[in-house]
Structure formats: C-alpha cells, structure tokens
Design a protein around this nucleic acid. Sequence first.
RNA 1: GGAGAGGUGGCCGAGCGGUCGAAGGCGCUUGACUCGAAAUCAAGUGUGGGUUCGCCCACCGUGGGUUCGAAUCCCACCCUCUCCGCCA
Length: 422
Amino acid sequence: MLDIREISRDPEEFRRRLARRGEVVGLEEALALDARRRTLIQQGDGLRHAKGEAEAGMRTADKQSETFARFRERMRTVGAEIKAVEAELAQAEAALADLMQVLPNVPAAAVPDGAGEQDNVELRSWGERPLFDFEPKPHWAIGEALGLLDFERAAKITGARFTVYRGALARLERALASYMLDLHTTEGGYTEILTPFLVNADSMFGTGQFPKLRADAFETTDGLVLVPTAEVPLTNLHRDEILQAEQLPIRYAGFTACFRREAGGYGRDTRGLIRQHQFQKVELVHFVAPEDSDAALAELTGNAEKVLQGLGLAYRVVDLCAADLGFGATRTHDLEVWLPGQGAYREISSCSNCGDFQARRAKIRFRAPGDKKPRLVHTLNGSGLAIGRTVVAILENYQRADGTVTVPPALRTYMGGLEIIA
RNA sequence: GGAGAGGUGGCCGAGCGGUCGAAGGCGCUUGACUCGAAAUCAAGUGUGGGUUCGCCCACCGUGGGUUCGAAUCCCACCCUCUCCGCCA
C-alpha cells in the first residue's frame, strides 16, 4: 500500500511514477477522500475535546446541582454530534482504504520503461545451452514415456492442471527441495522456516494478494486460504511487529506447496508442469532497512541464480519493465531458464523488492537506536526456485537420445547415488 | 467436539464505571558515581492520527450495546491456554 499522506504532499510525482505502469485509477479520488478525512478528523477531535472539558466539569460539580445538569446536557448533545462525524469519517476512511488497497506500488527509478513483457531488459545470461544430436522433447513427453509423470490419473483423482509424480521423479522433487534449502541455509545465510500451508485473510492482505487478486486463491469453507506462495506466510511472520535494527537483515528460506487457481490463465501452458494449480517452491524472503533494499535485491537474485548454476542449467536474468511489474513490486528480476524442449527461456524465479509497500500493509517496522519513531522495513521475496519448473528444466536439459535423463551431479547424493532416471 | 480460564504498553503484570494512556517490575535511553555503562541512585521511555507545531485526539483482542461518562458493565465474534474426547 502506498502512503496517502506522502502522495498528498506531491501528487504530481505519484501520478508520473504510477503512469509508468500504465494505470492511475483511483488516485484523484483518493486525494479528495483524504482531504475530506482530515477535515472530519479535525471536527471530531474538536468535539471530543469539548466533551472532555464537560466531563471534567462534571467530576467536580455536585451531582444534584444545576451546573451538573447543564454539563450532562452538553455531553449529550456533543456526544450525538461526535457520533455523526465518526460515522461519516468511517465511511470516508473505508472508501479511501478500498482505493488504496488496489493501487499498485510505484516502480523504482531504475526500472526500464515499457508497455509489456516484450520490453523487459536482459541483464545477463549464464551457462551453455545444451546441444543435442536428436530432437529434444518437451518434458511432459519425457516424463510420460518414462511412466513417471501421470497427468491422466491426476485428472481422475483431482482435475486438470494437477500431476502425479512416480518413483525417481517424485524423489527428484524431494531432492530438489532439500538441495535448495541446504544451499540457501549454508551459503546464503538464510534461516529455514517451515510454515503452515494455510493462512488467514489478514495475511493475504498483508502481502497484497487480497483484495485485488482474490479470485486467484483457493479458499476453504472456514475462511482460510491455501498459500499461493510461501512469501505470504514468511512475510507475515513479522506482521504487526516492531523489530530491533540489529535483528536486520532477516533472511528466511521456506518450502511450501503453492496453490493457484490460475484464473485467466486458461489456454496458456495447458500441457505439462509449467502452469499447475499446485506446485512446490522454495521461497526466499528478506526484511531489511530501507537503505539496504537495492543491495538486497541483487543478493537475493544471486542466491536464486546459485541454484541454477549448481544444477548446470543455462538461464538469463531479466529486468522487468514498468508495465510488467507485479502489484507490490518496485523492481523485479526474473530468472528464465533455458528449455530445449520448447526452444525458449521460461520464468523459474521472480525476485522482487517490494520497498515498504507490504510493510505498510502488514505493519512491519523496526527501530534503530537513533530513531524517535519506528520505521517501515523493506521486504523482498524471490523463488529459490520453483521446484516443478526445475524438474521441467532438468528433464529437458538432461534428456538423452534413449529417453532417459541424466541426474545433475549436484543432486546425486540426494538421490541415493542415482545417475540416470530411466 | 465438550468444560473451564484468559486476552492491558517492547516484555511481565495491576486496575474492574469518572481524577487511567493506564500502578509496579523487567528491558531500553540519558545523567550522577566510578579506573571501568559491574553495582547503586535520579530522570526519561507505548503506538497511531490531526495540527494554526502551542498543542489536540484516538487506541486496554475485534465489533456492537448500556451510560451524561466504559480498560472497567452487557452481548456477539476472534484468538490463546488448561483439562477431557478424537486423532497423523
């Protein structure tokens, strides 16, 4: 969430910055509501002050006296006025909150201009794309031919966009989760966290999924939500907390299953593991002081890259343009892995600096020794990595002519020494 | 699921109709003392909002209600804990 007071101090600046995303809905209305809000607050405070004085008068007055009766009458009328002003204020604040909750974050200055995905900027690439002396297959063909991916039975027991893994491939998912978590906790300085896979609505508001993207979430009948990413539970871990400056930076690595309706995503990636309603992911989250968040994004991205490097998978790093930025992000670096079966780079990690956007929603603050007031932290999150898509990348990059798949060396200890998935 | 207890400031904890943003303790900050922030003593120390920057206002789980007046009384809800039941 943006700060309406900050906006009202320099509306033109925010109009300009938000326009880079290609959307500015609600900004003007929010400014008008904020002005109304301030007026009502002043009225209400003034009335309450008058009421307090009347009450002080009553305390000392004789309860039988004429003075007491006059004060009581005064409190009665002022009380009624206060109620009226408060009702109007509550209405204005609710309307303002509705608008503010759906306003996206402003892009950082360094974010490239652009109108869509096509304007994203490649920052760097790593690794060699593998050469094949045969036609590389898409991962679903490899997995199904090996009998290790079963989309049909998944559809039977659950529905479309779910998968059943078998045998070595099931183990590969598990191995990847362990490999990634081990890497982040030993080399990246992350603390491993295992969270609930269900969260409440407040958490979804805190990280910005609600209310705008509510349609994409699976909700249970008793008001809980299946996590769309571990970013939600990990970031909300410190919701409504004031941290000590020396606790920062905080780095969490968490593994969860992730559940997404993919509402509106129908027709895209209908085959294979790329776009599932349920997938697993290791997520990285940072809480840092504002002045450190640029550097933290670079580190976070590097931490995710280390996984791909360790697995020997070619990738490129893309700087998302203003129009392609997610709702809460000020800046995002996507990692796109090379998929020979599709002849394309596909997103496997998205690393974002959310600035104070989530911290303001979730009230995550910190206090430094010299600070009079607590300040909002900056939050960052990134996949490290999406596990299902990593399986895709391994199947396609390590496939062999006979339909079997080489296990990347880094994973073999996690696979009981297995070298070939056959 | 059943029964009971409870939710107050960074933490612990008192208060149970007006003088309470709220005793006391811990923690923290500053000052004194000192070779030395070890101890002791003194003062300060919640969060948010508005502001004509003097101040003013709100907040005691959340939302209603009673009352001239609610942290305190009533109702509903949420959450936590204990015991019983069930259970991976």
